[in-house]
Protein backbone atom coordinates (compact mmCIF):
# COMPACT_ATOMS: atom_id res chain seq x y z
CA UNK A 1 0.00 0.00 0.00
CA UNK A 2 0.98 3.63 -0.37
CA UNK A 3 3.50 4.71 2.19
CA UNK A 4 3.03 8.18 3.53
CA UNK A 5 6.54 8.23 4.94
CA UNK A 6 8.21 8.00 1.54
CA UNK A 7 8.09 11.73 0.81
CA UNK A 8 10.84 13.63 2.61
CA UNK A 9 8.68 15.08 5.31
CA UNK A 10 9.14 17.40 8.23
CA UNK A 11 11.12 15.97 11.12
CA UNK A 12 10.89 18.00 14.27
CA UNK A 13 14.19 18.72 16.01
CA UNK A 14 16.12 21.61 17.55
CA UNK A 15 18.67 23.02 15.18
CA UNK A 16 19.85 26.27 13.72
CA UNK A 17 18.50 25.12 10.39
CA UNK A 18 15.06 24.48 11.87
CA UNK A 19 15.07 27.98 13.31
CA UNK A 20 15.93 29.64 10.03
CA UNK A 21 13.43 31.80 8.26
CA UNK A 22 11.87 29.74 5.45
CA UNK A 23 12.26 32.59 3.01
CA UNK A 24 16.00 32.52 3.64
CA UNK A 25 16.04 28.77 3.07
CA UNK A 26 14.29 29.14 -0.27
CA UNK A 27 16.72 31.83 -1.40
CA UNK A 28 19.54 29.47 -0.48
CA UNK A 29 18.04 26.67 -2.54
CA UNK A 30 17.88 28.90 -5.59
CA UNK A 31 21.48 29.98 -5.07
CA UNK A 32 22.56 26.41 -4.50
CA UNK A 33 20.86 25.13 -7.63
CA UNK A 34 22.63 27.85 -9.62
CA UNK A 35 25.91 26.88 -7.99
CA UNK A 36 25.39 23.23 -8.71
CA UNK A 37 24.53 23.87 -12.33
CA UNK A 38 27.62 25.88 -13.11
CA UNK A 39 30.10 23.67 -11.27
CA UNK A 40 31.67 21.28 -13.70
CA UNK A 41 34.80 20.53 -11.81
CA UNK A 42 34.93 17.33 -9.80
CA UNK A 43 37.04 18.78 -7.01
CA UNK A 44 34.60 21.66 -6.68
CA UNK A 45 31.66 19.32 -6.53
CA UNK A 46 33.31 17.20 -3.88
CA UNK A 47 33.87 20.32 -1.83
CA UNK A 48 30.24 21.28 -2.26
CA UNK A 49 29.14 17.79 -1.27
CA UNK A 50 31.23 17.88 1.87
CA UNK A 51 29.74 21.23 2.82
CA UNK A 52 26.25 19.82 2.24
CA UNK A 53 27.03 16.87 4.50
CA UNK A 54 28.19 19.29 7.19
CA UNK A 55 24.93 21.21 6.91
CA UNK A 56 23.02 17.93 7.13
CA UNK A 57 24.77 17.33 10.41
CA UNK A 58 23.81 20.79 11.59
CA UNK A 59 20.18 20.01 10.89
CA UNK A 60 20.03 17.36 13.66
CA UNK A 61 17.87 15.18 11.47
CA UNK A 62 18.82 11.48 11.66
CA UNK A 63 20.93 10.42 8.69
CA UNK A 64 18.66 7.49 7.98
CA UNK A 65 15.95 9.91 6.86
CA UNK A 66 18.30 11.47 4.35
CA UNK A 67 19.25 7.99 3.25
CA UNK A 68 15.58 7.17 2.76
CA UNK A 69 15.16 10.08 0.36
CA UNK A 70 18.08 8.94 -1.77
CA UNK A 71 16.93 5.35 -1.57
CA UNK A 72 13.52 6.47 -2.81
CA UNK A 73 15.22 7.87 -5.88
CA UNK A 74 17.35 4.87 -6.65
CA UNK A 75 15.42 3.95 -9.78
CA UNK A 76 15.80 7.42 -11.21
CA UNK A 77 19.50 7.45 -10.47
CA UNK A 78 20.01 4.05 -12.09
CA UNK A 79 17.98 5.20 -15.09
CA UNK A 80 20.14 8.31 -15.51
CA UNK A 81 23.32 6.29 -15.24
CA UNK A 82 22.14 3.89 -17.93
CA UNK A 83 21.01 6.62 -20.32
CA UNK A 84 24.30 8.48 -19.98
CA UNK A 85 26.24 5.29 -20.45
CA UNK A 86 24.33 4.63 -23.65
CA UNK A 87 24.98 8.09 -25.06
CA UNK A 88 28.67 7.54 -24.57
CA UNK A 89 29.49 9.63 -21.55
CA UNK A 90 32.65 8.54 -19.85
CA UNK A 91 32.92 7.34 -16.25
CA UNK A 92 34.11 10.66 -14.93
CA UNK A 93 31.17 12.50 -16.43
CA UNK A 94 28.69 9.98 -15.12
CA UNK A 95 30.20 10.03 -11.65
CA UNK A 96 30.07 13.80 -11.66
CA UNK A 97 26.46 13.77 -12.75
CA UNK A 98 25.40 11.29 -10.09
CA UNK A 99 27.33 13.18 -7.45
CA UNK A 100 25.64 16.44 -8.37
CA UNK A 101 22.23 14.82 -8.47
CA UNK A 102 22.60 13.18 -5.09
CA UNK A 103 24.00 16.34 -3.55
CA UNK A 104 21.11 18.36 -4.95
CA UNK A 105 18.55 15.91 -3.62
CA UNK A 106 20.20 15.89 -0.19
CA UNK A 107 20.30 19.66 -0.13
CA UNK A 108 16.61 19.94 -0.99
CA UNK A 109 15.86 17.35 1.68
CA UNK A 110 17.47 19.60 4.23
CA UNK A 111 14.69 22.03 3.43
CA UNK A 112 11.80 19.57 3.45
CA UNK A 113 13.01 17.81 6.58
CA UNK A 114 13.55 20.97 8.60
CA UNK A 115 10.59 23.01 7.43
CA UNK A 116 6.93 22.19 7.97
CA UNK A 117 4.81 22.60 4.81
CA UNK A 118 3.03 25.67 6.12
CA UNK A 119 6.35 27.43 6.56
CA UNK A 120 7.43 26.38 3.09
CA UNK A 121 4.22 27.88 1.80
CA UNK A 122 4.94 31.03 3.82
CA UNK A 123 8.44 31.21 2.36
CA UNK A 124 7.04 30.71 -1.12
CA UNK A 125 4.56 33.47 -0.49
CA UNK A 126 7.39 35.81 0.48
CA UNK A 127 9.43 34.72 -2.51
CA UNK A 128 6.63 35.26 -4.97
CA UNK A 129 5.23 38.41 -3.37
CA UNK A 130 6.84 40.75 -5.90
CA UNK A 131 4.57 39.04 -8.42
CA UNK A 132 1.54 40.55 -6.65
CA UNK A 133 2.26 43.58 -8.79
CA UNK A 134 1.18 41.68 -11.85
CA UNK A 135 -1.95 40.62 -9.94
CA UNK A 136 -0.86 37.03 -9.35
CA UNK A 137 -2.94 35.67 -6.45
CA UNK A 138 0.13 34.83 -4.41
CA UNK A 139 -1.59 34.40 -1.04
CA UNK A 140 -4.22 32.09 -2.48
CA UNK A 141 -1.55 30.03 -4.19
CA UNK A 142 0.44 29.75 -1.01
CA UNK A 143 -2.68 28.65 0.86
CA UNK A 144 -3.48 26.02 -1.77
CA UNK A 145 0.02 24.64 -1.58
CA UNK A 146 0.00 24.62 2.19
CA UNK A 147 -3.32 22.83 2.42
CA UNK A 148 -2.42 20.37 -0.32
CA UNK A 149 0.75 19.45 1.53
CA UNK A 150 -1.08 19.08 4.82
CA UNK A 151 -3.66 16.81 3.28
CA UNK A 152 -1.32 14.43 1.50
CA UNK A 153 -1.09 11.99 4.42
CA UNK A 154 -4.85 12.18 5.04
CA UNK A 155 -5.62 11.41 1.43
CA UNK A 156 -3.13 8.57 1.35
CA UNK A 157 -4.67 7.05 4.48
CA UNK A 158 -8.12 7.38 3.02
CA UNK A 159 -7.08 5.78 -0.28
CA UNK A 160 -5.62 2.88 1.61
CA UNK A 161 -8.87 2.34 3.44
CA UNK A 162 -10.87 2.52 0.23
CA UNK A 163 -8.54 0.07 -1.51
CA UNK A 164 -8.97 -2.32 1.40
CA UNK A 165 -12.73 -2.00 1.18
CA UNK A 166 -12.54 -2.84 -2.53
CA UNK A 167 -10.24 -5.77 -1.96
CA UNK A 168 -12.64 -7.22 0.58
CA UNK A 169 -15.26 -7.33 -2.16
CA UNK A 170 -13.11 -8.86 -4.85
CA UNK A 171 -11.14 -6.03 -6.44
CA UNK A 172 -7.64 -6.29 -5.17
CA UNK A 173 -5.42 -3.66 -6.78
CA UNK A 174 -2.15 -5.11 -5.61
CA UNK A 175 -2.82 -8.66 -6.64
CA UNK A 176 -4.65 -8.08 -9.94
CA UNK A 177 -3.69 -8.01 -13.58
CA UNK A 178 -3.84 -4.79 -15.60
CA UNK A 179 -7.57 -5.08 -16.21
CA UNK A 180 -8.17 -5.60 -12.49
CA UNK A 181 -5.96 -2.66 -11.62
CA UNK A 182 -7.89 -0.40 -13.97
CA UNK A 183 -11.20 -1.38 -12.43
CA UNK A 184 -9.74 -0.79 -8.99
CA UNK A 185 -8.51 2.67 -9.87
CA UNK A 186 -11.82 3.64 -11.46
CA UNK A 187 -13.66 2.46 -8.37
CA UNK A 188 -11.25 4.32 -6.15
CA UNK A 189 -11.88 7.62 -7.90
CA UNK A 190 -15.60 7.79 -7.20
CA UNK A 191 -15.52 7.76 -3.39
CA UNK A 192 -12.34 9.85 -3.40
CA UNK A 193 -14.03 12.58 -5.42
CA UNK A 194 -17.18 12.61 -3.36
CA UNK A 195 -15.29 12.59 -0.07
CA UNK A 196 -12.88 15.26 -1.29
CA UNK A 197 -15.73 17.58 -2.14
CA UNK A 198 -17.26 17.04 1.27
CA UNK A 199 -13.91 17.62 2.86
CA UNK A 200 -13.38 20.85 0.95
CA UNK A 201 -16.77 22.10 2.04
CA UNK A 202 -16.30 21.16 5.70
CA UNK A 203 -12.80 22.56 5.76
CA UNK A 204 -13.87 25.85 4.24
CA UNK A 205 -16.53 26.22 6.91
CA UNK A 206 -14.15 25.25 9.70
CA UNK A 207 -11.69 27.88 8.50
CA UNK A 208 -14.35 30.55 8.09
CA UNK A 209 -15.75 30.12 11.58
CA UNK A 210 -12.24 30.46 12.93
CA UNK A 211 -12.07 33.81 11.14
CA UNK A 212 -9.71 32.91 8.34
CA UNK A 213 -9.64 35.80 5.92
CA UNK A 214 -7.25 35.51 3.03
CA UNK A 215 -7.26 39.21 2.37
CA UNK A 216 -6.38 40.25 5.89
CA UNK A 217 -2.89 40.17 7.36
CA UNK A 218 -2.41 37.41 9.86
CA UNK A 219 0.25 36.51 12.40
CA UNK A 220 2.36 33.53 11.59
CA UNK A 221 3.18 32.57 15.12
CA UNK A 222 5.77 29.97 14.33
CA UNK A 223 7.81 31.61 11.65
CA UNK A 224 10.82 33.34 13.06
CA UNK A 225 11.93 36.78 12.20
CA UNK A 226 14.82 37.18 9.90
CA UNK A 227 17.88 36.77 12.11
CA UNK A 228 21.56 37.30 11.74
CA UNK A 229 22.07 33.61 11.02
CA UNK A 230 19.75 33.88 8.04
CA UNK A 231 21.71 36.77 6.60
CA UNK A 232 24.94 34.93 7.32
CA UNK A 233 23.91 31.78 5.48
CA UNK A 234 22.49 33.64 2.50
CA UNK A 235 25.65 35.72 2.25
CA UNK A 236 27.75 32.52 2.44
CA UNK A 237 25.81 31.09 -0.49
CA UNK A 238 26.19 34.27 -2.47
CA UNK A 239 29.89 34.33 -1.68
CA UNK A 240 30.40 30.76 -2.85
CA UNK A 241 28.50 31.44 -6.02
CA UNK A 242 30.49 34.60 -6.67
CA UNK A 243 33.80 32.85 -6.06
CA UNK A 244 32.94 30.04 -8.45
CA UNK A 245 31.77 32.42 -11.14
CA UNK A 246 34.87 34.54 -10.66
CA UNK A 247 37.16 31.54 -10.99
CA UNK A 248 35.40 30.49 -14.16
CA UNK A 249 35.73 33.94 -15.64
CA UNK A 250 39.40 34.13 -14.73
CA UNK A 251 40.04 30.81 -16.43
Amino acid sequence: MLNSMAIGRYYKAESKIHDMNPFAKLICIILFVALSMISNDIKLNLTISIIVILVMGLSHVPLRLYYKTIFGMRLLIIFIIIINFLIGANYIEITLLVLRLITLVLYTSILTLTTPPSEIAYGLEQLLSPLKIIKLPVSKLALSISLALRFIPTIIDQSNRILKAQASRGIDFQNSDIKGKLVAVKSLLLPMFVLSFKRAEDLGEAMEVRLYNIDKPRTNYRVNRWRFFDTYIVVMHLAMLTVVIARMIIK
Binding site: Y10, K12, P116, P117, S118, L147, L149, R150, T154, K198, R199, D202, L203, E205, A206, M207, V209, R210, L211, Y212, N213, K216, P217, R218, T219, N220, Y221, R222
Partner: peptide
Protein backbone atom coordinates in the same frame (compact mmCIF):
# COMPACT_ATOMS: atom_id res chain seq x y z
CA UNK B 1 -17.54 25.63 17.24
CA UNK B 2 -16.59 21.99 17.24
CA UNK B 3 -18.00 20.09 14.27
CA UNK B 4 -18.20 16.35 14.19
CA UNK B 5 -15.54 15.19 11.75
CA UNK B 6 -12.15 16.30 13.10
CA UNK B 7 -10.21 15.20 10.02
CA UNK B 8 -12.13 17.69 7.91
CA UNK B 9 -11.36 20.57 10.28
CA UNK B 10 -7.59 20.35 10.63
CA UNK B 11 -5.63 22.88 8.60
CA UNK B 12 -2.21 22.49 10.13
CA UNK B 13 0.42 19.84 10.38
CA UNK B 14 1.03 20.15 14.08
CA UNK B 15 -1.38 20.34 16.97
CA UNK B 16 0.17 23.57 18.24
CA UNK B 17 -0.32 25.26 14.87
CA UNK B 18 -3.88 24.02 14.77
CA UNK B 19 -4.67 25.52 18.14
CA UNK B 20 -2.98 28.76 17.15
CA UNK B 21 -5.01 29.11 13.96
CA UNK B 22 -7.82 31.31 15.26
CA UNK B 23 -5.43 33.61 17.10
CA UNK B 24 -3.24 33.94 14.03
CA UNK B 25 -6.30 34.99 12.05
CA UNK B 26 -7.06 37.59 14.68
CA UNK B 27 -3.59 39.04 14.37
CA UNK B 28 -2.71 38.31 18.01
CA UNK B 29 0.97 38.79 18.67
Amino acid sequence: VVFDNPDNQFVSETVADEIAFKLENLGVE
